[in-house]
Nucleic acid binder design. Structure first.
Lengths: 331, 331
DNA sequence: AATTAATACTAAAACGTTTGCCAAAAATAA
DNA sequence: TTATTTTTGGCAAACGTTTTAGTATTAATT
């Protein structure tokens, strides 16, 4: 593979001149530049970014840390990240941590060894102290969803607002009277924020006539399915679930037990995963902009890299209510 | 960040000795090595693999090319790949090509610029000629699913066998009489192989009494949903779909139109994506070992890297029939 | 015409490693 | 003892870039 010296030799100039010419810097006359560019093309020259990084300290590598790439939510965020990094010529160093904090920390070390310029961090396991390794090697970090450290920018969806929106819909348009909020563990920030949005909205609307109960389940399909029996003991007309996977679980339980959705039970989800619209009774839910979330995170990271003195910020995306059929007919 | 020279200075030795000591090479006495290792640890020294790669020509980078990381099939394969590469200390350079051949080729160029050592290529768009860039820079490639070039190893599931297995099940255990094979485009190798498996099995069983028709659809949810009406005009008792997404489409059409599955129509899928088991009538399908597929691909790539003279091989995984309820009760 | 300023380019050092070659020292063999 | 081999570790070059400093050369300003 041709290198910068080969070109220099062929053009009868110094490697430094070739470097400047190819990087579009000034200090090289037009005719020389032209000849350099031409022979570079002829030789099929491609700069070795690894070699360049040694001296520029810019590897062009960005770490992307996810809890589980097979989770459609993270995959979609990853795709958003990927779309902007590719355009800017950065390479993605993928770290699938498998929700394992040890593995995650091993990856953190690897990322710093490889001199990544920055990291997009989507983590449910990392603690603030785990990020010290990035601070030490001044690697920029942008957190997604979870504001792990005040040191770094965070990009997230406004869970509170989404919960407000869907609750208002359930109360004002659907007319629910007996609501159960089927949430995740109460330590999870998402559960806290969404539940608060729900409760605050009921209060704001002054609807003390509406009975509302809360239950906490494992926030996946199984958690939904297995807790539907208990759910039904509340005799609700509607359930608001912490996410769509849980909603799917509830829905399938209903199918198996001859409970008509939405007639006998209305189901409202959260996230708007792909399956939500494919369900035989398409799910009313809150759309999270996963792809855009990834894009924003990547864009923020790049601008912090380019302007090293930008302060960390919080970027909040607005979720969007999507009304389908699981809570009754569309308006 | 400490480097090899810092250690050398502190230990009063030459950088070369430090390198040898840290890489476990011989030619350095035990006490010197010990002192080097100790101060390396004290300084928190981490070798810069990028710098090392300049001279060793081994970047430790492996490209992972996928058509779409949000597709659960590819995501699962990716996770398999990731699991073995991480253990061996390789970094994954993720390329989500978005099913776009141009983007894919841009990524190929980037991969070669970054001097990846090898590439795991899952592609539906790449042509053999697109891979020349890897041959030129002798970058090893392992193809997954799709044997794009004879030059390279390919790892894939035995589509033919899987189709044989499920067809035999449908005929011998379920007792279908009027079967429709709802396949993808006839150019796709998967369609060809699975259809042939189906047909050959019918012939092998000598069941010329079974009526079998074929139709070609776009191989996704929508393709299934939108072609179910046409499908029903064949008055089949069973449909064998090219994949589970199509099966889901058919299933939901049936739900919407009051057609009971499996009583009025039995549905057999392929792939065993996660949704298959979550369906309200869980799907009988063929399990593809996606995770293992990724693991095998990565393992093969690494062994080719370590032993540069290994010949390319084909690795075939055996799929596994999984009987659920969409074709009638389990046995 | 003399000075200054700008331009085009070179030489060399740097980035952080690895490695081929060599010399000194130590160990072994004669 | 001497001769031979082996072990240990130093030196310097190399990998492919970028960048600093400096030198001619040319152009612009007095």
């Amino acid at each position: 593979m041709a290198n910068i010296k080969d070109i220099a030799k062929l053009c009868g100039v110094n490697p430094a001149t070739v470097s400047r010419a190819l990087n579009g810097q000034k200090g090289v006359s037009e005719n020389v530049r032209e000849s350099i560019v031409k022979t570079a093309r002829k030789l099929g020259y491609k700069k070795n970014p690894l070699a360049a990084s040694l001296i520029t300290r810019r590897s062009g590598l960005i770490g992307l840390v996810v809890p589980d790439i097979t989770n459609p939510y993270y995959a979609r965020v990853a795709k958003g990240v990927s779309s902007v990094l590719e355009k800017r010529g950065y390479a993605i160093f993928l770290c699938d941590c498998d929700r394992d904090r040890n593995l995650e920390n091993r990856y953190f070390e690897m990322l710093s060894n490889y001199r990544v310029e920055g990291v997009i961090l989507i983590s449910v396991t990392a603690q603030e102290s785990d990020l010290e390794i990035f601070a030490r090697n001044d690697i920029k970090v942008v957190c997604v969803d979870n504001p792990i450290s005040k040191e770094y920018s965070t990009v997230f969806n406004d869970n509170y607002q989404g919960a407000c929106d869907i609750t208002e819909h359930l109360v004002c348009n659907v007319g629910v009277k007996r609501l159960v909020a089927m949430m995740g563990t109460s330590e999870a920030t998402t559960t806290q924020q969404r539940l608060r949005g729900c409760m605050d909205t009921l209060e704001r609307l002054g609807r003390s006539d509406i009975l509302v109960s809360t239950m906490n389940v494992i926030a996946n399909y199984k958690g939904g399915y297995e807790n539907t029996e208990k759910l039904l003991s509340f005799k609700p007309d509607c359930v608001f679930t912490i996410n769509d996977s849980v909603a799917l679980g509830v829905f399938n339980y209903c199918q198996h037990h001859g409970i008509n959705v939405p007639r006998e039970l209305k189901i409202a989800g959260y996230d708007d995963i792909d399956d939500a619209s494919l369900l035989s009774v398409p799910l009313t839910t809150v759309h999270q902009c996963k792809y855009v979330l990834g894009q924003k995170a990547a864009t923020q990271l790049l601008s912090e890299l380019e302007n090293p003195h930008t302060m960390p910020i919080k970027i909040e995306l607005l979720p969007k209510l999507v009304v389908r059929e699981s809570c009754g007919e569309k308006l």
